[in-house]
Amino acid sequence: MKPAPFDYFAPTSLEEALEKLTDLGYSGKVLAGGQSLIPAMNFRMARPAALVDLNKVTELSYIKPTQDGGLAIGTMTRDSAIEDSEVVKRLFPIIAEVMPNIAHKQIRNRGTFGGAVAHADPAAQIPALSLLLDAKMKIQSKKGDRWVDAQDFFMGPFMTVLEPEDLLTEVLLPGLVPGTGTSYKQISRQRGGYAQAAAISKVVMDGIKVKDVRVVLFSVAETPVLTKEPVRVLVGQVPTTEAIEAVAEYVAQNECDPGTDIHGTAEYRRNLVRVLVRRSLTEAVERARK
């Protein structure tokens, strides 16, 4: 299983990278960590004519705290750097909780945060995290810079708003409100494998009532899904077991569209959504209360 030939460019600066992407247009493809792209190329399912390798663009690798208590993450920051980062653990414990579920260490040592966002695999954790955390995507090209909200970034499976000459250079995560509770639940066939369904929840409490809630699903639709029912039903309410169960049921039936594959039927995966939304919301509420 050897990849087909391609032209290769290894710019050492962002400027050079943007230039190259503009030159290459549709024939160019960004190579970040390569942990999804290269396997696909080895199977010859992906055959880019040219690769623009960002691994030497060191300026794109950083984790910077922002003034609002958030983080700016450079697109080439390795997954393992995020996983091991103390500041990430402190500001976004949910990210630290999710990261070990992404493949295995050897992959996380090479895979990048921005690469995963731009790859937009509907079964991947990082796009869903970016949606949960209301990330802002910094997109740069020779034509100029622009910011796109995570909600508007993902167009479909492996499809985003990025144009061939564009580069996602930074993911900006706004700070969490103090007292935010978060929780991640996934079911995969095996540790490190693709989730058959997953739910990530974020809850802010106001006394015994929910002040704010956000639940994102992934692996059960063409893009990660920011659900609506939890906000509609739970905000301003006491999150009772029954209320959470009802929300989970509604979300499973109405806010996802899982398919059937060799590992599970749509019905089973809907069942998982129900269970995981309930478990993740319940835990996020508990954590928010602490």
């Binding site: 079911i187 066939r189 058959q196 590992h263 599970g264 039927t265 019905e267 089973y268 995966r269 069942n271």
Partner: peptide, 11 residues
């Protein structure tokens, strides 16, 4: 089996 098949056995 897999979890989904087991789920359907139960259903």
């Amino acid at each position: 089996l897999n979890p989904s098949m087991l789920f359907h056995y139960v259903q």
